[in-house]
């Protein structure tokens, strides 16, 4: 179990992380979400013991994280990069050895992973000769080859095509069922929505919302409507019942004010435009994210 307690990190005059706390249990995927510059990377670096917190505690299985923890942590940074001129196999072995794997084990595991991610044929090639997606795969391997108990993935799907994204997703799921502690930091809300058991929304270094997706949805309200229509729908925005209106061309997403009955709202608009489809839906994490961050400003 990973416990972050009242974590504060200040750089000179700016507070990058302002008193946040959360717990990640084994076998869960914890989504650390927030806009750019929210403090995600700083939080991750503190957990990794790369930088020291100004105050607060980070506990892993009830003990403070020290240099001993290097070998049980797997980290995939947001901005990727490997030694371009080095061979794929050499690179993987180097990082595996740095995580305290013996050379022999490192070679075995490297071959296993290369095969698993179907890039075995590139074993002896230089990194720069590989496509971007395959380079990403190599980097992914380096972050998990030592079978770490704590895995931190920063935007793990960036740069992958949909097929590879699915492959990586399946892998992360398999890590979850193996009981790993997984922290996932991403901007892709739909991915977070599908993967994460718990969400922590951070903005300007502070917690905005946290908890399970269901809990956050309930807190946010459920009066969301997906509407397909024909005609000039701009008037909807001006109706007193409407809290938010996003027109996507083919359809629109509408958030109603708390006391509004969706059926009454439908009756009101049906005379003005041709409604093809009207459904009350749960808000997407994307909507919640945008809404909360906007409110926070």
């Amino acid at each position: 179990m990973l416990i972050v307690e009242n974590l504060v990190k200040k750089f000179n005059n700016t507070t990058a992380v302002n008193n946040i706390s959360f717990v990640v249990k084994p076998g869960t995927i914890f989504g650390l979400l927030g806009p750019n510059g929210a403090g995600k990377t700083t939080t991750i670096r503190t957990i990794l013991n790369i930088i020291k917190p100004t105050s607060g505690k980070i506990l892993f299985n009830d003990s403070v994280i020290t240099d001993e923890f290097f070998n049980i942590i797997g980290y995939l940074p947001e901005e990727r990069g490997l030694y371009r001129k080095s061979k794929v196999i050499d690179t993987i072995i180097y990082f595996a050895e740095l995580k305290n794997l013996s050379r022999q084990t490192a070679v075995q595991k490297a071959d296993k992973w290369l095969k698993k991610l179907s890039i075995g044929e590139y074993r002896e090639r230089k990194l720069e000769e590989l496509s971007k997606g395959n380079q990403q795969k190599v980097q992914f391997i380096t972050s998990v080859i030592h079978d770490p108990q704590l895995m931190i993935f920063d935007e793990p799907f960036a740069g992958f095509d949909p097929i590879n994204q699915q492959e990586i997703k399946d892998l992360i799921f398999s890590f979850r069922s193996e009981g790993k502690i997984i922290i996932l930091s991403t901007h892709q809300m739909d991915t977070a929505e599908r993967l994460c058991s718990e969400i922590f929304l951070i903005n300007k270094g502070k917690e905005v919302r946290s908890g399970t997706l269901t809990k956050i949805r309930n807190e946010f309200g459920t009066r969301h409507i997906k509407l397909e229509f024909k005609g000039d729908g701009t008037f909807i925005k001006t109706l007193p019942e409407v809290a938010a209106f996003d027109n996507y061309g083919n359809y629109a997403e509408i958030k109603l004010k708390d006391d509004v009955n969706p059926s009454a709202f439908l009756r009101k608009i049906v005379g003005e435009i041709d409604v093809y489809r009207f459904s009350v839906v749960e808000p997407t994490l994307n909507q919640i994210f945008i809404d909360l961050i906007k409110k926070d400003k």
């Binding site: 790369i50 240099d67 901005e79 490997l82 740095l98």
Partner: peptide, 17 residues
């Protein structure tokens, strides 16, 4: 500079002191 610009440094110092 190379490791800094391609962020390998982050992996390295999450692996050793």
């Amino acid at each position: 500079i190379e490791e800094k610009s391609n962020r390998i440094i982050e992996i390295l110092i999450s692996s050793c002191k």
